[in-house]
């Protein structure tokens, strides 16, 4: 187990290092180079030259990369030139809120999608079945923002029972205090994920239905319900956990859109506002933090898989 952990964490570190390289290179493709990216579009040529010299941007690329990385290691992500605040403190404020949003909507989505997927996998041709299958198919093709707009039109305009605006509180506690405002953003995220998750669950169940152990369970006298909800479910969870690991970047992209529609004060909104004003320190800092979060997330998914599936556990013991 320690060997597996060491190997997997080593891989994750390599990936994080590669991500820093990508972000570093992005910084250098900003028109006018990092100086303009950091000082903002209004900076004068003299200021840029002074800045470049002061920060060592006139040195060789490897040297600059080393400086950049050692800055990162000290938690230094630079400072926003539109918000006059350090990027790390901005992100620190915002990221818990984004995690709450994605976490809750993923949870809701799983609670709906797992039974739905199992049911689809065991489908019997019928009107309800076609109806739900079509619905899932359409859900899969619907852009999140369109979905969010429909929710707004239905629940905030036609039947005005929920607020359009997400809570604007500074703290997490404040966020939950105004929980009605959380409903629509979470719902939008959840519906978008249900379509994807239930498709995965459906194919996992279909794969498992063809397995020999299902026949054994039936031959023992187990009921169909027991076969599906106990024997098959248990074996379908491993691919679902693996899928969650893969889906993390998609979930974060979804959060970006949802936050911008509902004005939810998370990383996504911060990022979107920064994109409108070309605030590069925020943009690149956020990319880095989100990428690291994704790497950590898929690491956790891998370890979790090992705990659920005795075969995986056996292979890495």
């Amino acid at each position: 187990m320690t060997r597996f952990l060491a190997k997997r964490i080593g891989q994750a570190l390599v990936v994080v290092a590669l991500v820093t390289v990508i972000v570093f290179l992005l910084l250098h493709t900003v028109p006018g180079g990092p100086a303009r990216g950091i000082l903002g579009p209004q900076a004068t040529a003299a200021a840029i030259a002074a800045f470049n010299h002061e920060h060592g941007f006139d040195r060789s690329l490897p040297e600059q990369y080393w400086m950049y990385v050692s800055g990162l290691l000290h938690g230094d992500l630079g400072a926003s030139y539109t918000l006059n605040q350090s990027v790390s403190s901005l992100i620190e404020q915002r990221i818990p809120k984004t995690l709450v949003l994605t976490g809750l909507s993923t949870l809701v989505a799983l609670l709906v999608a797992i039974p739905l997927g199992v049911w689809q996998g065991r489908r019997r041709k019928g009107l309800t079945d076609y109806f739900i299958t079509t619905l899932v198919f359409i859900g899969y093709a619907t852009p999140v923002f369109f979905l969010a707009l429909i929710l707004v039109i239905v629940f905030a305009e036609k039947i005005p029972i929920l607020p359009v605006q997400a809570p604007q509180a500074e703290t997490l506690a404040g966020l939950f205090a105004d929980s009605r405002g959380l409903v629509l953003p979470i719902l939008a995220g959840a519906i978008a994920s249900v379509a994807v998750f239930s498709r995965y669950m459906r194919s996992a169940v279909l794969d498992n239905l063809a397995e020999d152990y299902v026949r054994t369970a039936r031959a023992k006298g187990a009921s169909e319900r027991r076969v599906v909800w106990l024997h098959i479910m248990r074996n379908s969870l491993t691919p679902i956990v693996a899928m969650l690991g893969y889906q993390l970047p998609v979930l974060f992209s979804g959060a970006l859109v949802i936050e911008s529609v509902f004005n939810y004060p998370g990383m996504g909104l911060l990022f979107w506002n920064a994109a409108q004003t070309s605030d590069y320190p925020i943009l690149l800092g956020a990319v880095l933090v989100i990428a690291v979060a994704t790497v950590i997330g898929s690491l956790i998914a891998d370890i979790l898989q090992a705990f659920i599936d005795p075969r995986v556990r056996g292979a890495i013991k």
Partner: peptide, 19 residues
């Protein structure tokens, strides 16, 4: 590939669109 996948596509696209 892992590193590329770790950066959500939409974030990367928005950064590129500003560049």
């Amino acid at each position: 590939v892992d590193a590329g996948i770790a950066i959500p596509a939409l974030f990367l696209l928005l950064v590129s669109a500003t560049i």
